[in-house]
């Protein structure tokens, strides 16, 4: 229902338009689809490099978020939920980070995503950063969990852009598994 994003000729257009969402898990409440959907708040959208920086400069760094909060950066038209049509057959790479690394890794990840560094066509859906008590987590969601060439390329690109050591904790999980 939102109008299309306008870009001036002087701006650097991105391959895709993106939407940033914020969510916070309510303590003590059982999560369900309705509450998860209601907890997702749209922060802003952008379709150019300049619009991205304009939004990003107003955000707190992930390391400053309170526990159980999340930023979701997804292509416009894809909601950051397993149930979205684009995500139903998909999955996500999960990278667990010790405290202190998340802000830098998140920035490097989204710059790679916006700059089309993953080189997997239309497969990328979005990225999520989750702040937890003893660790932080970043995830990259893609459309087709069964496309092993794509998931391998995403994994390798993640290792490269995040400078992860070989021992870093990385796990791929299909959304089907999460739904079950």
């Amino acid at each position: 229902s939102l109008p299309p994003i306008e870009i001036s000729p002087n701006e650097h257009k991105l391959q895709y338009a993106y939407a940033l969402w914020y969510s916070r898990r309510s303590s003590g409440k059982q999560p369900n689809i309705q509450s998860y959907d209601q907890n997702l708040k749209l922060v802003g959208r952008f379709a150019s490099v300049e619009q991205f920086w304009s939004l990003y400069s107003h955000l707190v760094r992930p390391s400053e978020l309170t526990t159980s909060t999340h930023f979701h950066l997804f292509k416009v038209g894809i909601k950051p939920m397993w149930e979205d049509e684009a995500n139903q057959k998909g999955g996500k790479w999960i990278v667990r980070l010790r405290k202190g690394l998340v802000s830098r890794c998140w920035e490097n990840l989204i710059l790679a995503m916006l700059g089309e560094q993953f080189m997997v066509g239309e497969e990328i859906c979005g990225a999520v950063v989750s702040i937890r008590f003893q660790e932080d987590v970043i995830c990259v969601w893609n459309k087709t969990a069964s496309d092993y060439a794509t998931t391998a390329r995403i994994r390798d690109t993640l290792r490269r852009v995040l400078h992860l050591p070989a021992s870093a904790s990385m796990e791929y999980k299909t959304h089907n598994e999460s739904l079950k």
Partner: peptide, 21 residues
């Protein structure tokens, strides 16, 4: 088809451009 690809350094250089600000 063609894709719009940006290197990290290029994106970072636009962070403080007049249009971004």
């Amino acid at each position: 088809g063609t894709r719009i690809v940006y290197e990290r350094d290029f994106l970072m250089n636009l962070r403080n451009s007049p249009i971004s600000k």
